[in-house]
Amino acid sequence: MQEQSSSFDYSVIDDIVEAQAALGGSIIAILQDVQEQFRYLPREVFPYLANKLKISQANIYSVATFYENFSLDPKGEYVIKVCDGTACHVRKSIPILERLKKELGLIGDQHTTPDLLFTVETVSCLGACGLAPVVTVNDKVYPAMTPDTATELLNSLKKEAADVQTA
């Protein structure tokens, strides 16, 4: 009854829905798990979930676009978040963001490098204000950053990625 994309593994979605059903989790929890799995919300998931959960696709889309954490575009392997909470902002977090984007060649609204290695975005206060300005990489917090330490961090991540690839 439905034309599915043949390359997409829907069993992952089935597992997530089943697990969340047991916990009484809402569509938000399901989407969070999907995003954890794919690092974004693949478009194939929407009609599939709509059909499975008997809610409209527009409704799922509506929820997915409301919350900052959901991404409809694939994210990089390293998601770098620059905190722009008040404390970090006052201690100059924006130059760090600009440096990171510049180093990675990200222009304007672009957040992810074409090789899907890095995503750079801002995040509302992480509550690590004592360490301002902070940056997180895949949820690991790096305190008291400067544009220069950001460059260093980027270089070490690049090296790590290269090592993984060659290994």
């Binding site: 916990l23 009484g24 809402s26 569509i27 938000i28 929890a29 989407l31 969070q32 509506s62 929820v63 409301f66 919350y67 900052e68 954490n69 959901f70 509302s124």
Partner: peptide
């Protein structure tokens, strides 16, 4: 007791938005 993870919306600190969010809706 259950834990509900937010998904990134400041407005969910408002009571009715927060409960809407737990219910799986937009946090309005």
């Amino acid at each position: 007791l259950k834990i509900n993870r937010g998904a990134g919306a400041f407005v969910c600190g408002e009571g009715s938005a927060l409960t809407a969010s737990i219910e799986g809706k937009r946090g309005m």
